Simulated assay, not measured.
Amino acid sequence: MADESDSPGGPPAPDPGQGGRLAQRLGLVSSVQQLEEQQEQQREDPAPRRSTAGRGRVLLVRIGYWSVTVLVMLGALVLFAMAGSISAHHQAGLEEQAQDGFDAQERTTAAQQGLADLPSQTEARRWLARATTVGEDLAEAQNTYLDHTGPITTDDLPEQTPGPGGRDECHPYLDDPATTTRDYTEEELTTCAEGLRQSAVGGLERALTPHFAVSARDSDGFNAVSQWHSAVPTLDDDAPLSGYTWTAHEAQAFERDLAIRMVWVLTEDETGRTVAWLSGRFDPLVNKFDDMVLGTVAAESEEGAEDGTDADGDDTGDTSAGDGADEQGGEPEDGE
């Protein structure tokens, strides 16, 4: 008798492992379904909200973060400001020190330039000698003025004509010179004396002009090319002044601008008394005098001191010419 399991028409025999495999499949399906249900629930439900305590902590953290950030930025700004202030102060100190150096350099340059502008010893001596020579020439011209002041006199003129073919000092000034020997008339002698005076002083002003700057030739004040004694109030132009003499003192020193101060003194020949003095600045580069200052000295018989004042203390007539010339009185020291 055959076995039922081997019978071709009978039902198959149950597999012992089939049940286990089915259970596994069912469990897998169940897990998948659970997973899908969880995902679906997560999609439907929003994320769980954080608790109030958690949000507070997060807020405090953020506040602390921004506070620290702000403090750091403020500190950086303060440091930058302090650094800028220190830098500016330091820069100002450096500029001040540099300016001191620049000033010292400028003074050094000016001193060097001043030394370069100074004349050599030979040139300085030549300038002083030139000032003295010009000063003496001016004194000589003024003495000529003094010799020809006062009334016309004929005492020193010849009494007779020179005769036929002869000539004398009066001959050039007479319209019709005598051709025979005879005595001069008084009119002829007067004409001769006037001609001699005019010939002696007529060209002096023109000769003096080149030696003075324009400011020293001011006609409104003391005119240096005129007769100096006419500005001395103690002298009478109508009286003979041949007994007075202008003397030029030797130039000996330079002023700051290299000008040379020259002094002339007017004295009375008989007594040696100083009547007036005149000073002027000689510019050796242009060979001209300027800043002329005239001072007078009171007579010894008057009670006023020798400072150009009279007995009442009033000025006796000091006169100055040139810009910035100060009125002075009294006699200057020699070589001033």
Rank of each mutant, 00 (worst) to 15 (best):
G221Y: 05
G304Y: 00
V293L: 11
T190C: 14
P210I: 01
G203Y: 13
E270Y: 09
G221F: 03
P240M: 15
E187P: 14
L196E: 12
S215P: 02
D176P: 03
E194K: 14
L266V: 02
T245L: 09
H171Q: 14
P284E: 01
D176S: 04
T247E: 06
A200V: 05
R167H: 13
D220Y: 15
L208D: 08
Y184L: 01
G195L: 01
A239K: 13
A299V: 11
E188L: 05
L174A: 01
G308H: 03
E255S: 07
V232L: 02
I260P: 02
H229E: 08
D307M: 10
L241I: 05
D283K: 08
T180K: 14
T267K: 12
Y173S: 03
V293Y: 09
V275L: 01
R281E: 12
T271M: 00
T209F: 06
D307W: 14
V201T: 08
A193C: 04
D307K: 11
D283T: 07
T274K: 03
D176T: 03
E270L: 10
I260R: 04
K288D: 09
E187I: 12
S301Y: 11
W264E: 02
E205I: 15
A224W: 00
A298W: 13
T245H: 13
R273E: 15
P177T: 06
V265T: 07
L235E: 04
Q252H: 14
P177A: 07
S230G: 04
T190D: 14
S230F: 05
C192K: 00
D238Y: 11
T247S: 07
S279N: 09
D236E: 14
L204R: 07
R256G: 09
A311E: 10
D283R: 06
L285V: 14
T191D: 10
T271G: 00
E306C: 08
E194A: 15
A251W: 00
W246P: 01
G308I: 01
A193G: 00
S242I: 07
D168P: 02
D291H: 11
D175Y: 04
T234N: 12
S219T: 15
I260F: 04
D314R: 08
T234D: 10
Y244F: 09
T180D: 11
R197I: 01
M292I: 13
E205L: 14
L208H: 10
R273Q: 15
P210C: 05
P177Q: 05
P177N: 08
W228A: 02
D312T: 08
R206L: 13
A259Q: 15
N223K: 13
T179P: 01
I260N: 04
A239Y: 11
L258D: 09
Y173T: 02
S279R: 08
E188N: 05
F289E: 07
T185H: 05
